[in-house]
Amino acid sequence: MLRLLKVNGDSMAPDLKEGDFVVITTVPFFLNRLKPGNIIVFENKQYGTLIKRIASFDPQSAEAYVEGTQPESLDSRRLGPIHRDAIRGKVIAHFPKNKR
């Protein structure tokens, strides 16, 4: 239902930074209604558990294209579309390491 994860890496900075905590929901109801701008956690065979922002989501194919905030970020150009089955959760709360 809910999971707590720690962010590792800075490709989502300044929105999410190294060491921040996020809470994700794994409830299918929310994961079937994803939209651009949502931040998701998903699995990738090569890179493991990743956290990125949705650039676009195609409900018909149930595939999301993701991007990071930083230009150097690993994104869907390298990862390809992220299928719904690989998406573990959507970020619903964020606890930053440093208050901004």
């Binding site: 890496g9 490709s11 956290i51």
Partner: peptide, 9 residues
Amino acid sequence: FEKAHAHCD
């Protein structure tokens, strides 16, 4: 806790 990676190259 599990880590979610915000990877860069």
